[in-house]
């Protein structure tokens, strides 16, 4: 199912995900993409492995001395704590949203609480930490998103349908990574309504006046 993905995450984002330095909204994007993309999942595991080696090879002056009774305290913690039961992976889930997104939405597509943004476009903002934002977007088939530029980094992943911008075609699992010098006009594919996950570390700036005013209210 994953061979069709053409637009992947890059090293910088995968490494930051492994290091744990991304804002929550970006972690949600990466976890959602990895759920759909085996090759990026393998890359992400390599970056975890690199983290393991960095930890293992810490120099003596970086290693911290423990409290004198540290081991005993830990063994006491172990006796007090519950042993985790092996958890069985969910199988046969036939969902459009990958598991990390279902956890935020509280279910699959039917659980999304859409708010209209105009021109048939709808969005649902997901609750993440304030340093970045995550939202689901619904774009009717053949509809253009308002032309917008970017302040910071924005990533958009298709979950259903497809969209096209000046350069490329994006289908389920594909991620478009845009930065501040990029101006583009994505258009949803004519055959099907498009649902995307979009994350940004700064608010989008719309070129037209009305969306610009609306931006303040809609937290786009």
């Amino acid at each position: 199912m994953t061979e069709t993905i053409k637009h992947h995450l890059n090293d910088a984002i995968l490494m930051a995900y492994a290091a744990g330095s991304l804002p929550e909204a970006f972690n949600l994007m990466v976890a959602s993409h990895l759920s759909l993309c085996d090759s990026c999942r393998a890359q992400a595991e390599s970056f975890d492995a690199l983290g393991g080696e960095v930890l293992d090879q810490m120099r003596n002056d970086e290693v911290a001395d423990l409290q004198p009774e540290s081991l005993e305290a830990t063994l006491a913690l172990i006796l007090g704590g519950p042993v985790d039961k092996p958890h069985v992976a969910e199988t046969n889930v036939c969902a459009v949203l990958p598991k990390p997104l279902r956890d935020y939405v509280g279910g699959d597509l039917e659980a999304i609480r859409w708010k209209p943004v105009g021109m048939g476009v709808k969005q649902a903002i997901l609750p993440t930490s304030k340093d970045a934002s995550a939202r689901l977007l619904f774009i009717p088939a053949g509809t253009a998103m308002p032309d917008h530029g970017h302040h910071g980094t924005e990533m958009t992943m298709v979950l259903k349908g497809a969209f096209q911008d000046e350069d490329d075609y994006f289908a389920r699992g594909d991620v478009e990574i845009a930065d501040s010098d990029m101006h583009h006009t994505p258009v949803a594919d004519i055959h099907e309504d498009c649902i995307c996950l979009a994350v940004a570390d700064a608010p989008l700036q719309f070129d037209r006046l009305i969306p610009k005013i609306a931006q303040r209210f809609l937290r786009i």
Partner: peptide, 10 residues
């Protein structure tokens, strides 16, 4: 913060 993890493989 929460750290979303990828879906478990089967």
């Amino acid at each position: 913060q929460r750290r979303p993890e990828p879906e478990d493989l089967t």
